[in-house]
């Protein structure tokens, strides 16, 4: 009697079951599987170890692996939840889920706060805010004098720092975002609404029917 040898599917390090990831995120199982195709492409673009290194993240974002950008660094660091210098598949899916159009605003507000809390103090402070404005000016054609930048930072703090203690805490940030909803526009990626339709090349033969979930 013969036997059937089935070659096991080889997954990248940090691979997690799409069913579990879908249950923990806004994505369906099919969407998680589509994201795995995207993840494999990015994670094999330079160092072919199945993990996304910062250079690969920069290459995907900017078509340039050497382009330094403070904000891309911050996004990478937040995606890298285990803080081991790379993004694995589970981290990739869980982080991108925050950018899904259907994800709760509170999650987006919290993620944005952590992005801006450069020094991980639990607050956004004036020197951090000024550093970020200067970093943006440095990467753009906008040219503003130091006095003008300081005025913008002071005015922003006057509006956001309701308690007047010189720093923006998570509650003040939430209130400020409610008054200025445009601040969350970067926190939503329409592409994620239905990644399997937007990127048909990523559609795989799924073993799990989303309707059965």
């Amino acid at each position: 009697m013969g036997c059937v040898c089935v070659k096991p599917v080889k997954h990248t390090p940090g691979y997690e079951d799409p069913v579990i990831l879908a249950s923990e995120t806004t994505f369906t199982v099919s969407e998680v599987e589509a994201l795995y195709e995207l993840f494999k492409k990015i994670s094999h673009s330079i160092i072919k170890d199945g993990l996304i290194h910062k250079e690969e993240f920069q290459l995907a974002l900017f078509r340039n692996s050497n382009k330094k950008n403070l904000f891309a660094d911050r996004v990478f660091d937040l995606f890298d939840a285990k803080r081991n210098g790379v993004i694995d598949f589970g981290e990739f899916v869980r982080s991108l889920s925050i950018f899904h159009p259907d994800t709760e605003k509170t999650e987006k507000i919290s993620f944005a706060f952590r992005l801006y809390d450069l020094r991980h103090t639990g607050f956004i402070e004036p020197d951090e805010l000024k550093e970020m404005v200067l970093a943006l000016l440095n990467e753009s054609d906008l040219c503003l004098s130091d006095d003008v930048v300081q005025q913008i930072v002071d005015k922003t703090f006057a509006e956001a720092d309701k308690k007047g203690d010189g720093k923006i805490d998570p509650d003040e940030w939430k209130e400020f975002v409610v008054q200025n909803p445009s601040l969350l526009k970067n926190m939503t990626l329409p592409y994620l609404k239905d990644i399997t339709m937007a990127f048909p090349s990523f559609v795989m033969k799924s073993e799990v029917n989303d309707d059965e979930m």
Partner: peptide, 25 residues
């Protein structure tokens, strides 16, 4: 300039994650 500091920061290309998808199609 009638923008708050966060509006200015949000203009950074580093926040535009659509690049992750566009380059992989």
């Amino acid at each position: 300039l009638n923008m708050n500091a966060f509006d200015i920061i949000s203009l950074s290309a580093g926040f535009d994650l659509s690049g992750l998808f566009e380059g992989s199609e």
